[in-house]
Simulated scan of single mutants.
Amino acid sequence: MATTLKDIAHAAGVSLTTVSRVLNYDQSLSVGAATRKRIFAVAEELNYTKIRHPKAPSTTKMRKIAIVQWYSEAHEQDDLYYMAIRLGIEQRSQQHQLAVTRIFQNNIDQLTEEIDGVITVGKFSAAQVNELATLTDNLVFVDDDQFAAGFDSVLTDFDQSVRQVVDFFWQQSQSDIGLIYGIETTTDGQRKIADPRYQAFSAAMTAHHAYQSELCFASDFTNQGGYQTMKQAIADLGAQLPHAFFVANDPMATGALKALQEAKIAVPARVSLFSFNDTALAKYVYPELSSVHVATRLMGTTAVDLLLQRAQRPRVPQRVELGTELVFRASTQTA
């Protein structure tokens, strides 16, 4: 009786689907090398007649990639969010034996050799996108939605996460909620980036009939910016200072916390703080910050996977949006 895929699956201790995809050289399948080797060995041992020895996947054509970070190397040290994304890219690249060139502050003039793909991290103007596209057809944007321009994009879900934060405060009977959000421009100054957290916050508060523009303060995503902005809010609002603040990233939130502590405003007894990104910084302060956990490493690894898929075969652009999770710590109180 001829050996079937079911026989191989049983002997190898894996699913029938896994056997089928491995024996058909499906490189998109996430399975370890040891498992692949075991399946092929079992197939040969059982004299599976359709067995073919694996050929090198077409993705091996990709050898060198560049990571183009919009931050300078020094700035990246101050914002662990973008560093974590880059580390995710490098980790996955190492798994696929890809050589990686790092380019900081979008300085693509530093590229002195041909590369097979580019992964960008951060925000880029239309002119910068066009310039990057001249380097390679294999281009993936992380944390910048360039899907409409025809490029793969890896993004974070802002709408649901911000709505969850607002709803959490609401459930704690904290309906006067302030916001510290960020404003940025691309390195060439040609594009001003609106903070999607502001838009999501405005929509969520409006749904509760509680949006107040005077409780929303713009900053620059830095620790010092958060500190100065919260000091301004304390001075401007006085006794009307909200009982809760959502802050758009961890550096600004730590600065805001410092300003509250200097003003002898108790956190979370008088003001609760909820941050965004959940980098290690959120746990380095006292009280530790509640924060929206963003899958930064997964954003990086997903970008590499998209790059390899496109190198393997042409396809339409993909827009991948990753979910988030609320992490509760001591800067917020629960009823």
Rank of each mutant, 00 (worst) to 15 (best):
A11P: 05
T17K: 12
D26L: 01
S28Y: 06
V31L: 06
A33W: 06
T35P: 10
R36K: 15
R38L: 14
I39L: 06
E44R: 14
S58R: 14
A66V: 11
S72T: 15
V100I: 10
T101F: 05
R102A: 11
R102H: 12
D109F: 03
D109E: 14
D109I: 03
I115F: 08
D116S: 06
V121M: 06
A127I: 06
E131Y: 01
L132T: 03
L132S: 04
A133I: 04
N138H: 14
D144L: 02
A149L: 03
D152H: 11
L155N: 05
F158V: 03
V162R: 00
R163A: 15
F169D: 01
Q171S: 15
D176E: 15
G178V: 04
L179R: 01
D188T: 04
S202P: 00
S202C: 09
S213G: 03
D220V: 00
K231W: 00
A233R: 01
M252R: 02
T254H: 00
A263T: 00
A266G: 02
V271R: 01
F274D: 07
F276S: 02
D278R: 02
Y286P: 05
S290N: 05
S290L: 05
S290G: 08
V294H: 01
R297S: 11
T301H: 02
L307R: 08
R310F: 10
Q312A: 15
Q312K: 12
R313T: 14
T324A: 12
F328N: 00
A330C: 05
Q333P: 04
